[in-house]
Design a protein around this nucleic acid. Structure first.
Length: 273
RNA sequence: GACUGAACUCCUC
Protein backbone atom coordinates (compact mmCIF):
# COMPACT_ATOMS: atom_id res chain seq x y z
CA UNK A 1 0.00 0.00 0.00
CA UNK A 2 2.78 2.38 0.91
CA UNK A 3 4.67 1.72 -2.31
CA UNK A 4 1.65 2.39 -4.49
CA UNK A 5 0.82 5.53 -2.55
CA UNK A 6 4.32 6.91 -3.02
CA UNK A 7 4.19 6.16 -6.72
CA UNK A 8 0.96 8.06 -6.98
CA UNK A 9 -1.20 5.08 -7.80
CA UNK A 10 -3.98 5.36 -5.23
CA UNK A 11 -6.26 3.00 -7.15
CA UNK A 12 -3.65 0.26 -7.01
CA UNK A 13 -3.19 0.93 -3.33
CA UNK A 14 -6.92 0.63 -2.80
CA UNK A 15 -6.88 -2.59 -4.74
CA UNK A 16 -4.32 -4.12 -2.43
CA UNK A 17 -6.28 -2.73 0.48
CA UNK A 18 -9.45 -4.48 -0.67
CA UNK A 19 -7.78 -7.73 -1.65
CA UNK A 20 -6.27 -8.12 1.77
CA UNK A 21 -9.52 -7.10 3.40
CA UNK A 22 -11.31 -9.85 1.49
CA UNK A 23 -8.84 -12.33 2.87
CA UNK A 24 -9.88 -11.21 6.30
CA UNK A 25 -6.90 -8.99 7.00
CA UNK A 26 -7.79 -5.81 8.86
CA UNK A 27 -5.94 -2.63 8.00
CA UNK A 28 -4.12 -1.04 10.91
CA UNK A 29 -2.82 2.40 11.76
CA UNK A 30 0.20 1.93 9.54
CA UNK A 31 -2.04 1.19 6.56
CA UNK A 32 -3.93 4.41 7.15
CA UNK A 33 -0.75 6.37 7.78
CA UNK A 34 0.72 5.21 4.50
CA UNK A 35 -2.32 6.29 2.53
CA UNK A 36 -2.60 9.62 4.31
CA UNK A 37 1.02 10.39 3.61
CA UNK A 38 0.60 9.25 0.03
CA UNK A 39 -2.21 11.71 -0.49
CA UNK A 40 -0.10 14.54 0.84
CA UNK A 41 2.81 13.54 -1.36
CA UNK A 42 0.57 14.15 -4.32
CA UNK A 43 -0.95 17.31 -2.97
CA UNK A 44 -4.30 15.74 -2.23
CA UNK A 45 -4.71 17.49 1.08
CA UNK A 46 -8.48 17.13 1.18
CA UNK A 47 -8.38 13.42 0.51
CA UNK A 48 -5.88 13.01 3.34
CA UNK A 49 -8.04 14.98 5.74
CA UNK A 50 -11.06 12.94 4.76
CA UNK A 51 -9.30 9.65 5.37
CA UNK A 52 -8.10 10.92 8.73
CA UNK A 53 -11.72 11.59 9.65
CA UNK A 54 -12.73 8.18 8.39
CA UNK A 55 -10.10 6.40 10.40
CA UNK A 56 -11.31 8.06 13.57
CA UNK A 57 -14.90 7.18 12.66
CA UNK A 58 -13.85 3.57 12.31
CA UNK A 59 -12.21 3.65 15.70
CA UNK A 60 -8.64 3.42 14.55
CA UNK A 61 -6.64 5.55 16.93
CA UNK A 62 -4.22 7.87 15.12
CA UNK A 63 -0.71 7.72 16.54
CA UNK A 64 2.22 10.13 16.50
CA UNK A 65 3.17 9.10 12.97
CA UNK A 66 -0.36 9.82 11.76
CA UNK A 67 -0.20 13.30 13.22
CA UNK A 68 3.31 13.86 11.93
CA UNK A 69 2.22 12.96 8.42
CA UNK A 70 -0.75 15.31 8.65
CA UNK A 71 1.26 18.12 10.17
CA UNK A 72 3.87 17.68 7.47
CA UNK A 73 1.22 17.84 4.77
CA UNK A 74 -0.21 21.06 6.11
CA UNK A 75 3.22 22.57 6.64
CA UNK A 76 4.30 21.77 3.10
CA UNK A 77 1.15 23.36 1.74
CA UNK A 78 1.84 26.42 3.87
CA UNK A 79 -1.18 25.90 6.08
CA UNK A 80 0.79 26.29 9.26
CA UNK A 81 -2.30 27.23 11.21
CA UNK A 82 -3.93 23.87 10.54
CA UNK A 83 -0.67 22.14 11.37
CA UNK A 84 -0.55 23.96 14.68
CA UNK A 85 -4.13 22.99 15.48
CA UNK A 86 -3.27 19.35 14.91
CA UNK A 87 -0.27 19.75 17.17
CA UNK A 88 -2.57 21.06 19.90
CA UNK A 89 -4.99 18.25 19.19
CA UNK A 90 -2.37 15.58 19.65
CA UNK A 91 -1.27 17.15 22.90
CA UNK A 92 -4.90 17.12 24.01
CA UNK A 93 -5.10 13.41 23.29
CA UNK A 94 -2.08 12.75 25.42
CA UNK A 95 0.12 11.88 22.47
CA UNK A 96 3.73 12.93 22.90
CA UNK A 97 5.07 14.94 19.96
CA UNK A 98 8.53 13.70 19.02
CA UNK A 99 11.57 15.17 17.26
CA UNK A 100 9.89 14.68 13.91
CA UNK A 101 6.81 16.63 14.99
CA UNK A 102 8.82 19.57 16.18
CA UNK A 103 11.23 19.60 13.27
CA UNK A 104 8.34 19.48 10.83
CA UNK A 105 6.67 22.42 12.52
CA UNK A 106 9.90 24.41 12.60
CA UNK A 107 10.26 23.87 8.87
CA UNK A 108 6.64 24.87 8.39
CA UNK A 109 7.08 28.11 10.27
CA UNK A 110 10.21 28.92 8.26
CA UNK A 111 8.40 28.19 5.02
CA UNK A 112 5.86 30.91 5.73
CA UNK A 113 8.51 33.30 6.99
CA UNK A 114 7.62 33.05 10.66
CA UNK A 115 11.20 32.54 11.76
CA UNK A 116 10.51 33.79 15.22
CA UNK A 117 7.98 31.05 15.95
CA UNK A 118 10.40 28.53 14.49
CA UNK A 119 13.13 29.65 16.84
CA UNK A 120 10.85 29.61 19.84
CA UNK A 121 9.83 26.04 19.16
CA UNK A 122 13.41 25.02 18.53
CA UNK A 123 14.49 26.50 21.84
CA UNK A 124 11.72 24.67 23.67
CA UNK A 125 12.67 21.25 22.36
CA UNK A 126 15.13 20.56 25.16
CA UNK A 127 12.52 21.45 27.76
CA UNK A 128 10.04 19.18 26.02
CA UNK A 129 12.40 16.28 26.44
CA UNK A 130 12.87 16.03 22.69
CA UNK A 131 16.29 17.54 22.07
CA UNK A 132 16.90 18.57 18.47
CA UNK A 133 18.82 16.11 16.32
CA UNK A 134 20.98 16.88 13.30
CA UNK A 135 17.94 17.19 11.06
CA UNK A 136 16.31 19.64 13.45
CA UNK A 137 19.47 21.72 13.38
CA UNK A 138 19.55 21.62 9.59
CA UNK A 139 16.00 22.91 9.42
CA UNK A 140 16.63 25.63 11.98
CA UNK A 141 19.94 26.72 10.48
CA UNK A 142 18.47 26.93 7.02
CA UNK A 143 15.64 29.01 8.42
CA UNK A 144 18.02 31.39 10.17
CA UNK A 145 20.09 31.77 7.01
CA UNK A 146 17.01 32.49 4.95
CA UNK A 147 16.02 35.05 7.58
CA UNK A 148 19.41 36.69 6.96
CA UNK A 149 20.54 35.86 10.46
CA UNK A 150 23.76 34.11 9.57
CA UNK A 151 25.54 35.19 12.74
CA UNK A 152 22.86 33.56 14.82
CA UNK A 153 23.08 30.48 12.63
CA UNK A 154 26.79 30.22 13.34
CA UNK A 155 26.13 30.54 17.06
CA UNK A 156 23.52 27.79 16.93
CA UNK A 157 25.93 25.67 14.93
CA UNK A 158 28.47 26.03 17.71
CA UNK A 159 25.86 24.94 20.26
CA UNK A 160 25.41 21.86 18.18
CA UNK A 161 28.96 20.78 18.77
CA UNK A 162 28.49 21.34 22.50
CA UNK A 163 25.65 18.85 22.40
CA UNK A 164 27.86 16.14 20.91
CA UNK A 165 26.03 16.19 17.63
CA UNK A 166 28.17 15.58 14.57
CA UNK A 167 27.27 18.13 11.90
CA UNK A 168 26.54 16.44 8.60
CA UNK A 169 27.57 17.73 5.19
CA UNK A 170 24.05 19.15 4.80
CA UNK A 171 24.67 21.37 7.81
CA UNK A 172 27.87 22.67 6.24
CA UNK A 173 26.15 23.20 2.91
CA UNK A 174 23.49 25.29 4.57
CA UNK A 175 26.03 27.43 6.40
CA UNK A 176 28.30 27.88 3.40
CA UNK A 177 25.30 28.96 1.37
CA UNK A 178 24.12 31.32 4.10
CA UNK A 179 27.56 32.89 4.46
CA UNK A 180 27.95 33.32 0.72
CA UNK A 181 24.55 34.94 0.41
CA UNK A 182 25.53 37.33 3.18
CA UNK A 183 28.67 38.21 1.24
CA UNK A 184 30.85 36.58 3.88
CA UNK A 185 33.09 34.67 1.55
CA UNK A 186 36.07 34.25 3.83
CA UNK A 187 34.25 32.35 6.59
CA UNK A 188 32.59 30.28 3.90
CA UNK A 189 35.95 29.34 2.47
CA UNK A 190 37.22 28.47 5.90
CA UNK A 191 34.30 26.19 6.63
CA UNK A 192 34.94 24.46 3.35
CA UNK A 193 38.65 24.06 3.99
CA UNK A 194 37.99 22.67 7.44
CA UNK A 195 35.78 19.87 6.20
CA UNK A 196 38.40 17.17 5.85
CA UNK A 197 39.69 17.88 9.35
CA UNK A 198 36.15 17.20 10.54
CA UNK A 199 36.08 14.03 8.48
CA UNK A 200 33.16 15.30 6.48
CA UNK A 201 33.42 14.96 2.73
CA UNK A 202 32.10 17.71 0.48
CA UNK A 203 29.49 16.62 -2.04
CA UNK A 204 28.43 18.04 -5.38
CA UNK A 205 26.03 20.40 -3.64
CA UNK A 206 28.87 21.68 -1.45
CA UNK A 207 30.96 22.51 -4.49
CA UNK A 208 28.02 23.99 -6.36
CA UNK A 209 27.15 26.16 -3.40
CA UNK A 210 30.62 27.59 -2.99
CA UNK A 211 31.21 27.94 -6.73
CA UNK A 212 27.94 29.85 -6.95
CA UNK A 213 28.94 32.08 -4.06
CA UNK A 214 32.32 32.82 -5.59
CA UNK A 215 30.81 33.59 -8.99
CA UNK A 216 28.26 35.92 -7.46
CA UNK A 217 31.03 37.90 -5.84
CA UNK A 218 33.03 38.01 -9.05
CA UNK A 219 35.70 35.47 -8.14
CA UNK A 220 35.39 33.49 -11.34
CA UNK A 221 38.92 32.16 -11.52
CA UNK A 222 38.76 30.88 -7.96
CA UNK A 223 35.44 29.27 -8.81
CA UNK A 224 36.97 27.64 -11.84
CA UNK A 225 39.87 26.28 -9.80
CA UNK A 226 37.40 24.76 -7.39
CA UNK A 227 35.51 23.26 -10.29
CA UNK A 228 38.68 21.60 -11.52
CA UNK A 229 39.29 20.07 -8.10
CA UNK A 230 35.93 18.35 -8.01
CA UNK A 231 36.72 15.12 -9.84
CA UNK A 232 39.85 14.60 -7.79
CA UNK A 233 37.73 14.73 -4.67
CA UNK A 234 35.23 12.25 -5.95
CA UNK A 235 32.57 14.70 -7.07
CA UNK A 236 31.20 14.64 -10.58
CA UNK A 237 30.06 18.08 -11.73
CA UNK A 238 26.39 18.09 -12.69
CA UNK A 239 24.31 20.41 -14.80
CA UNK A 240 23.88 22.75 -11.83
CA UNK A 241 27.66 23.09 -11.55
CA UNK A 242 28.05 23.98 -15.21
CA UNK A 243 25.11 26.33 -15.30
CA UNK A 244 26.43 28.31 -12.36
CA UNK A 245 29.88 28.57 -13.92
CA UNK A 246 28.58 29.46 -17.37
CA UNK A 247 26.55 32.26 -15.85
CA UNK A 248 29.66 33.49 -14.05
CA UNK A 249 31.75 33.55 -17.22
CA UNK A 250 28.92 35.18 -19.15
CA UNK A 251 28.82 38.01 -16.67
CA UNK A 252 32.53 38.40 -17.22
CA UNK A 253 32.09 38.49 -20.96
CA UNK A 254 34.38 35.48 -21.28
CA UNK A 255 32.84 33.91 -24.37
CA UNK A 256 35.67 31.46 -24.95
CA UNK A 257 35.28 29.84 -21.55
CA UNK A 258 31.53 29.72 -22.01
CA UNK A 259 31.89 27.92 -25.32
CA UNK A 260 34.39 25.49 -23.83
CA UNK A 261 32.04 24.68 -20.94
CA UNK A 262 29.05 24.28 -23.22
CA UNK A 263 31.02 21.81 -25.32
CA UNK A 264 31.89 19.84 -22.21
CA UNK A 265 28.25 19.80 -21.18
CA UNK A 266 27.29 18.52 -24.56
CA UNK A 267 29.82 15.71 -24.39
CA UNK A 268 28.49 14.72 -20.99
CA UNK A 269 24.88 14.90 -22.06
CA UNK A 270 24.10 17.68 -19.60
CA UNK A 271 21.42 20.23 -20.34
CA UNK A 272 22.13 23.96 -20.31
CA UNK A 273 19.41 26.08 -18.78
C1' G B 1 9.06 -5.13 11.52
C1' A B 2 6.39 -1.87 7.83
C1' C B 3 4.15 4.24 7.76
C1' U B 4 6.11 10.52 9.27
C1' G B 5 10.61 15.23 9.55
C1' A B 6 15.97 18.07 7.55
C1' A B 7 18.66 18.09 2.63
C1' C B 8 20.84 22.11 1.45
C1' U B 9 23.16 24.56 -4.30
C1' C B 10 21.68 26.08 -9.79
C1' C B 11 17.33 26.27 -13.10
C1' U B 12 11.92 26.17 -13.48
C1' C B 13 7.19 26.93 -11.19
Amino acid sequence: VDAFCKEGQPSEAEHVFEMTAQKGAEPNVVTYNSIIDGYFLHNRVDAAAKLFGLMIERNYAPNVVTYNALINGYCKSKQIHKAWLLYQEMLGKGLIPDVVTHTTLIGGFCLVGNFHAAEQLFDKMHAYGQPPDVQSYATMLDGLCKAKQVDKAIAVFQQMENHQLEPSIVIYNILINGLCNAGKLEPARELFKGLSAKKVEPGVVTFNTLINGLCNEGHISEAFTLFNEMEGRGCVPNSGTYNVLVRGFLRNGDKLSVEQLLREMNQKGLAAD
